[in-house]
Simulated assay, not measured.
Amino acid sequence: MTRQFVTAIATALAVVSFSAMGCSTAKDEVRETPAPEKQKLATTKPSGPLPPELATESERWEVYARYGTLKPQIVVVDAGLEADKLAGYLPQLVRVRVSFPNPDPSGMPDRKALGWLNEISDFLHALAQKNRWSIPGWVTHDGVRDFYVYGPSELTKALPKAVRDQYPEIDVAFEAEQEPAWETYQTLLYPRPVDWQVISNQRVIQKLRDLGDTLQTPRKVMHWAHFPSEEARESFAETLDEFEVDEMSKADDSQMPYAVRFSHTTSVEPPVINPVTIRLMRLAAAHGGEYDGWETSVTTQVE
């Protein structure tokens, strides 16, 4: 997704309650958008300037609500960066922390604040593009938005001056740190496995909504999980007290050949489906397997 499209999604997420920011997943969607592996970053600094063919921004932007925090954190990340190549050329990190007035109880901005936060984002990206810096993402939380900018050593002076000249009235703070391995990108911004599931979930839920699904009506929801052995699958299936086991199968051409399909009746609103899918993901992993998501029919009537 483009940065502009993801910004629109992030804006929508920021104005809904955190209880509605759930984690769900669907079988086909997970297979269509597998989580890429983290990149192993170079530890030696390359010689010369940043090559012109090396892009500092990609078209693969993602947005997700971080799961497991006390208050919501809306993370926007450029997941398609060639970070392993960029890190050596752009080792300086500057965090630009912009505080916004009147956050709601969950720490999120209102629509007025979102407007000028997105304006600042556009300014920073234009500045980064002009100077060949990289902005791999930002996090909105607790009344602030933290933008993360990587560049050469002169970034520490050039970036604060440009922001203060453009926005002398805003409440902004800067924090600089040398990060030749881009640790912040790797550990704070880049999605964890559960975050990739959240990302896929958002796409699936949005597709259901686009088809007129209310999400509220209970319906049959089918889940899948795969295991390396029949014993592991049986052990997992024994824990499925509130589900009906529908089918067990084996695929000879898979590292996880032993599959189980199971189902229950539930609505698919994010706060409802979220704890179910997260628990199943962790439960399957505890038995050495992989949770492969869920699937359901489109329901347009409210019961």
Rank of each mutant, 00 (worst) to 15 (best):
residue 12 A to T: 14
residue 20 A to T: 06
residue 26 A to T: 12
residue 27 K to L: 07
residue 29 E to P: 13
residue 35 A to G: 09
residue 48 G to D: 13
residue 52 P to V: 13
residue 52 P to D: 08
residue 54 L to Y: 06
residue 56 T to R: 10
residue 61 W to H: 07
residue 62 E to K: 03
residue 72 P to I: 06
residue 72 P to V: 06
residue 76 V to T: 11
residue 77 V to P: 00
residue 77 V to I: 05
residue 83 A to K: 00
residue 88 G to D: 08
residue 95 R to W: 03
residue 102 N to E: 15
residue 106 S to W: 04
residue 107 G to K: 00
residue 107 G to Q: 00
residue 107 G to E: 01
residue 110 D to R: 05
residue 112 K to N: 10
residue 114 L to V: 05
residue 116 W to Q: 01
residue 121 S to I: 02
residue 121 S to E: 05
residue 121 S to R: 01
residue 124 L to I: 15
residue 125 H to I: 05
residue 125 H to Y: 11
residue 133 W to D: 03
residue 135 I to D: 00
residue 140 T to A: 01
residue 140 T to C: 04
residue 141 H to C: 10
residue 151 G to P: 04
residue 156 T to R: 12
residue 166 Q to K: 08
residue 166 Q to W: 13
residue 177 E to Y: 13
residue 179 E to I: 03
residue 192 R to L: 00
residue 196 W to V: 01
residue 196 W to T: 01
residue 199 I to D: 01
residue 217 T to Q: 15
residue 220 K to C: 06
residue 229 S to H: 01
residue 232 A to G: 15
residue 238 E to W: 11
residue 238 E to R: 10
residue 240 L to T: 11
residue 242 E to W: 11
residue 245 V to Y: 13
residue 254 S to V: 07
residue 258 Y to G: 00
residue 264 H to P: 05
residue 264 H to N: 08
residue 268 V to H: 03
residue 270 P to L: 03
residue 281 M to T: 14
residue 283 L to H: 14
residue 292 D to C: 10
residue 298 V to R: 09
residue 302 V to D: 09
